[in-house]
Computed example of a mutant assay.
Amino acid sequence: MIDRASLGIVVVFYRPDGECIRRANCYAQYGLTVVIDNTERVSGASELGLAPSVKYVANGRNLGIAAAINQGVHQLVSAGCANALIFDQDSEPSAQLIVGLPNLVDAAVASGRPVAVVGPAYEDIRLGGVAPFVRFGYMKLLRITPVGDKLLDVDFLISSGSCLNLAAWEEIGPMDEALFIDFVDLEWCIRARAKGYAVLGAPQLRLAHELGGEPVKVLGRVYPSHSPLRHYYLFRNAVVLIKRRYVPWSWKSTELVKLPVRLAIYGLFLRPRLAHLRMAALGIWHGLTGRMGEF
């Protein structure tokens, strides 16, 4: 069983619906739950329907996923929590995941291993079901099938559904707010591994999570799609990370191969084509010239 006093949960809101509120209220039974709301309008917790036990922070504007996670984790560290579960507003975790991930973090730490984060395999039916874990390989990603019950060394995890070891947070540092949204989790995992911390996948746990918008099918393969604005951040931040020295060349080489492929797919198969191409090109330019933060 988890120690309820040691577990914190951060949920990032952006224009939440009733189901988002229901999930956040449900989390409160497991540990201190902090909701960071990036919605433009400012609402009160009671107006939204959040339970009194949920700590609510309304930013009144979209500060980005990195800033929101940092705000939430700061609240949990100040409250003395040992672990932090991170969820997007639309993720649908099971009770088994909420209880299991902190236990796995604690067990790994107790074994003497420096652990930054443990996360589940995510499942998006639209993209073909359970996604593999990933290690970086030159020119292509190495995909690890999530089977068995032993933790797997991986190179990065998506933030939603992951459980952070807050004892490592201070040394690793917060999420990079200048990135704003895309590759935020990847950059933090790279930094954690560079400092000697393990990033571990839990193949026995699953998180139902939709990655991006409606997928696009090209030559029999399904790709996640995003809005033109999200493609701006995706291309900009890829270029920014390629320029950073601490980011391994194994990942950089893969991105250099994938960037022109993505550009072709988004420019040819997503509408409006011109908007996707223009925002992707602008993102590349801003990445090269060092323009960061919110668009």
Rank of each mutant, 00 (worst) to 15 (best):
I2P: 05
L7D: 11
R15Q: 15
P16H: 06
I21L: 06
A24F: 00
A24H: 02
C26I: 14
A28R: 10
A28K: 02
Y30Q: 10
Y30P: 13
G31Y: 07
L32S: 09
T33V: 03
V34Q: 04
V42P: 05
A45N: 00
A45Q: 06
G49Q: 00
L50K: 06
A51Y: 06
K55G: 05
A58V: 09
A58W: 03
V73R: 01
H74S: 15
L76Y: 05
A84S: 04
D90N: 13
E92G: 12
P93K: 02
S94K: 07
S94W: 12
I98K: 08
G100H: 05
L101V: 08
L101H: 03
V117H: 01
V117D: 01
V118Y: 05
E123D: 13
I125P: 13
I125V: 14
P132H: 07
Y138L: 15
M139C: 12
L141C: 10
P146Y: 01
V147L: 07
G148L: 01
K150A: 14
L151T: 00
F156A: 09
S159W: 06
G161T: 06
S162Q: 03
L166V: 05
W169H: 02
E170P: 01
D176M: 07
A178C: 11
F183N: 14
D185A: 14
D185H: 04
L186E: 10
C189Q: 03
R191G: 13
R193Y: 01
Y197N: 01
Y197Q: 03
V199L: 02
G201W: 01
Q204S: 14
A208N: 15
H209A: 00
H209F: 00
P215E: 00
V218L: 00
R221M: 11
P228F: 00
L229Q: 12
R230V: 10
L234N: 10
V239F: 11
L241G: 12
R244S: 04
V247A: 07
P248L: 05
S250P: 00
S253M: 11
L256Q: 09
V257E: 01
L263N: 11
A264G: 14
A264E: 13
L268I: 08
R271C: 00
L274Q: 11
R278W: 14
A280F: 09
G283D: 08
W285A: 15
G287C: 05
